[in-house]
Computed example of a mutant assay.
Amino acid sequence: MSDKQSVLGRVVRLSTTDIGALVERAGDPRAVLDRLVHDYTDAIADAERAVSTTLGTLRLLEQDHAEDVRADGEWGARARAVSRKADVLRAAGSDAAADTFDRLAKVALARQLRSEREAMAAEPAIAAQRDLVARLGAALDGMRTRLGELKSQHEGVRALSRTAAAVESVNVLDTTTELGRFEDKVRREEAKLAGQEVGASCLDSEFEQYERPESPGDTAEVEARLAALKATT
């Protein structure tokens, strides 16, 4: 198997891989997607090189074929011209000269035959190269699309990981966080409304700074958002 056929096999194999199933079965989806993005990127680079090389070979074959076809026509035309010359000479009684031109016509016909055969012999190779270029090109397009999807999926998994890590790092009952201080303030206000005795805390004065908007614009925005909240309850 040629290197280009091997590359095509790899590209086709990757392009038909059930990525969803691999990710679902994986203990570490992010690691699987990392590996797939790497493999797809490498395979695309290999396929691009194979397409470039195959195209170069195809262009040379096509040029040689075109040259053989052109030579076939030119040698045929020369053979006809020389043969006619031989006929004219023979009709004029110059048999020896006619024989010479007939031999030249045979030489031209032999060259025509060789060019014709070379052109015909090149056609299967040209067809095979064109087919390989088409298949590699189609597989390459598919791989590029799938790589884009993989990168999006990979970014999604990374985002989920970051979100999960962020959520795990925040304890709403921890009064050392801003959210924790807010929740503590809410609980104490609710306790006051219920008539429970709740001792004053330094958190009250600390949280007051978050109750004061930084600018008139902020004040308006806060008021608007509060109104919107009330409108939905």
Rank of each mutant, 00 (worst) to 15 (best):
A119V: 02
M120A: 02
A121Q: 04
A122K: 06
P124W: 02
P124V: 03
A125I: 00
A127F: 00
A127D: 01
A127Q: 04
A128F: 04
A128K: 00
A128E: 01
Q129K: 04
D131S: 15
D131T: 15
D131A: 12
L132A: 00
L132T: 00
L132G: 04
A134Y: 00
A134P: 02
R135V: 05
R135P: 07
L136N: 03
G137R: 01
A138Y: 01
A138I: 01
A139M: 06
A139S: 06
D141G: 06
G142L: 07
G142W: 02
M143A: 08
T145I: 09
R146K: 13
R146D: 06
R146P: 05
R146H: 08
G148F: 05
G148Q: 04
E149S: 09
E149M: 10
L150V: 05
K151R: 11
K151F: 01
Q153T: 14
H154C: 15
H154I: 13
H154F: 11
E155W: 12
G156W: 10
G156P: 08
V157K: 11
V157D: 09
V157M: 14
R158A: 15
A159V: 12
L160H: 12
S161M: 11
S161D: 10
R162M: 12
R162V: 14
T163Y: 10
A164D: 11
A164K: 11
A164T: 11
A165R: 08
A165M: 14
A165D: 12
A166S: 15
A166Q: 09
V167D: 05
V167L: 08
V167G: 03
S169F: 08
N171G: 10
V172K: 03
L173W: 06
L173K: 07
D174A: 14
D174M: 15
D174P: 07
D174N: 14
T176W: 05
T177I: 13
T177G: 08
E178V: 13
L179S: 04
G180P: 07
G180D: 09
R181N: 15
R181A: 15
E183S: 01
E183C: 01
E183Y: 04
E183M: 01
D184H: 13
D184T: 15
V186F: 14
R187H: 07
E189F: 07
E189I: 14
E189T: 12
E190H: 06
E190G: 06
